[in-house]
Simulated assay, not measured.
Amino acid sequence: MTDWTRTPFARTLGLRYPIVQGPFGGGISRIGLTAAVSDAGGLGSFGAHHLEPEELDVTVGLLHAATNHPFAVNLWVPRPGQPDELDRTTYDTYSDALRPWFERAGMSPPVYRHAASPDFDAQVEVVLARRPAVFSFVFGIPSPEVLAECRRRGIRTIGAATHLDEGIALRDAGVDAVVAAGYEAGGHRPAFLRPASDSVATGPLTAQLSAVLEIPVIAAGGIADGRGIAAALVLGADAVQIGTAFLATDQSGAPDAHKQALRSPRSRYTALTRAFSGRLARGIRNDFLDAFEFADVPAYPQQNWMTAPLKAAAAERDDAELLALWSGQGAALLTDRRDATELFEFLVEDTDHILGATPRPTTAWESVA
């Protein structure tokens, strides 16, 4: 049997398997899911970009208590010129378009409220102090000082690239590994040097990055079983990152309506949209996405703040037509394994079968021949 598990990435972090659980933003990451994946031998991840520094400190402490194995904490790097708060002018300009949707959710349109992003520098200070095994990030590259301090403290760093240009920039900055965030992936396109619409598909991006970079490449996007893992490894990946399949498990924080959508035939139909957050992201089509697919919406994070009360109300009501149903194009491949540990075991066993010595079944046309 081919030993696909002993890649440099897995050995460096002390993982039994080169499988990374994708981090989920927007408050749907859960400590139980991160710990389950890490305990199973992969790298569990926790999306923490929305947490205030004090909340982040508590969360990383709970993660350390929940597992003795490596895990990753993921943050979003602020973009130059990114708004720091929701301004009144933006709210007044775009709020009328959301009014019918708030009414549909059974709530009055919220009055203008102040909203602001957590302090990224303060979040990073928490990560440095708490020392998770991995600090992962999207939408850019932290400062050279932060990356140097991570190295000094033994924290491995992983950045995300949607294009070869971004992968080279991450390598040149001294990042330890690069996620090849393919066009097929669910959630936000973490582009930062090229337009998000320029994102390259997982296969070509993985092959390009692995051919040029001297650091591990982690393939992400459209991977949901052993076939996807095997293909990524053949293309040069050192590991894979799987998000949508773990998002559908019992341990994730996604609303039930979201999980049901991921496991239904409607998951075959995804689209890239700015409707929910102001940033291009892939999700399952629903009424809200379709209505705003070509609409002019505020940039991130303005639109994200404006739709936040609506998404919260939709989650409370389990209304799949108003939720951000983030999903990759591999959702149609999901099995009925709803427990994260059981899913992880399936991924390992399926990859063993694909890359192992077990003969494949004879097909009908071969037997006739």
Score class of each variant (00 low, 15 high):
residue 129 A to E: 15
residue 215 I to F: 09
residue 348 V to L: 10
residue 20 V to I: 15
residue 152 R to C: 08
residue 241 Q to I: 06
residue 82 Q to F: 09
residue 159 G to E: 06
residue 154 G to P: 09
residue 130 R to Q: 15
residue 327 S to P: 02
residue 366 E to L: 09
residue 283 G to E: 03
residue 24 F to V: 07
residue 297 V to H: 14
residue 323 L to Y: 01
residue 107 M to Q: 06
residue 41 G to H: 11
residue 304 N to Y: 15
residue 330 G to L: 08
residue 6 R to H: 15
residue 326 W to K: 01
residue 147 L to T: 04
residue 72 A to H: 11
residue 318 D to T: 06
residue 92 D to I: 01
residue 179 V to E: 00
residue 357 A to T: 13
residue 228 G to F: 14
residue 280 L to K: 00
residue 145 E to D: 14
residue 267 S to N: 05
residue 27 G to R: 10
residue 301 P to T: 14
residue 281 A to D: 02
residue 258 H to P: 05
residue 147 L to F: 05
residue 319 D to E: 08
residue 190 P to D: 08
residue 67 T to W: 07
residue 197 S to Q: 12
residue 357 A to D: 14
residue 253 G to V: 13
residue 351 T to C: 13
residue 100 P to T: 01
residue 251 Q to T: 12
residue 257 A to K: 00
residue 253 G to W: 14
residue 341 T to V: 15
residue 279 R to K: 12
residue 124 V to H: 07
residue 245 A to L: 07
residue 270 T to C: 04
residue 310 L to I: 00
residue 145 E to T: 11
residue 17 Y to C: 08
residue 261 A to Q: 02
residue 116 A to S: 14
residue 30 R to K: 12
residue 304 N to H: 15
residue 5 T to F: 14
residue 245 A to N: 04
residue 129 A to C: 06
residue 355 L to T: 02
residue 314 A to L: 07
residue 363 T to R: 06
residue 39 D to M: 01
